[in-house]
Amino acid sequence: MLRIECPHCGARDEAEFSCGGEAHIARPKEPDKLSDAEWADYLYMRTNPKGILAERWCHTFGCRRWFNIERDTVSHEILRVYAMGEPRRESGT
């Protein structure tokens, strides 16, 4: 059970949160201009890295707010918690 630092409530057990999968997948501004393949890429394709992943979490049973974290998918270490809308870090920094 992860311990996640909610930016609005402090550290809480994973059971209070829901994971929204990979972060920084913006909805295309003009979906009609995309090919089926490009749309499918937005809908379904995720990087699924072994290592550092930026992902969205929602503090469902606390403040109901969404935020981003960077999590190491191998060690489950949470390296960073940051607000929705903040950009991802360049890898290696």
């Binding site: 829901s18 929204g20 913006a26 909805r27 969205r56 929602c58 469902t60 109901r64 707010r65 969404w66 929705m84 809308g85």
Partner: peptide, 13 residues
Amino acid sequence: MAWLEDWLQCEWP
């Protein structure tokens, strides 16, 4: 409810 909040907070703040 969760779905609507998701769009509102993450995509259309």
